[in-house]
């Protein structure tokens, strides 16, 4: 986890330094704000990882001499086949296309999105099959 933290903090600090130089030199606002946001993108998760690094032991994937058996147990819960990402994707696309073809299309798109929200919630309880 230390490497992960290091990368994020490196990214954040780099952009912060570049932002300061750029702002002082050019005085230009839009680029400085974007660089500031990029610095935040590095520092925020970096601080989150820093918080965790001090509270958790090294994971098997962080130790060079860990054996496969140390990683035994559940890796995570992975869904099986499900139709709902497809329905959500179509709903999002139709809603976005309503920006071009008119608000009526958003009604169709949003109905897809709402039905996905309901069904994915139920799916988690019921099991991952379609």
């Amino acid at each position: 986890m230390k490497s992960e933290r290091g990368i994020y903090m490196l990214v954040g600090i780099f952009f912060f330094v570049v932002m300061v130089i750029y702002f002082l030199w050019s005085g230009e606002a839009s680029g400085s704000i974007m660089l500031f946001a990029a610095a935040g993108l590095g520092v925020m998760p970096g601080l989150y990882f820093s918080w965790w690094v001090r509270r958790m032991p090294l994971r098997p994937e962080d130790r060079p001499e860990a054996t496969m058996s140390e990683g035994s147990g559940a890796v995570g819960a992975f869904p099986s086949n499900t139709i709902w990402p497809f329905v959500l994707g179509m709903g999002a696309a139709l809603t976005a296309l309503s920006l071009v073809f008119g608000a009526w299309l958003a009604v169709v798109g949003l109905s897809f999105i709402i039905s996905t929200a309901l069904n994915v919630s139920l799916e988690s309880r019921r099991g991952g099959s379609i």
Binding site: S72, S80, G127
Partner: peptide, 8 residues
């Protein structure tokens, strides 16, 4: 390693 399917 074990993979858990989400089917209860």
């Amino acid at each position: 390693m074990t993979i858990i399917e989400e089917e209860i």
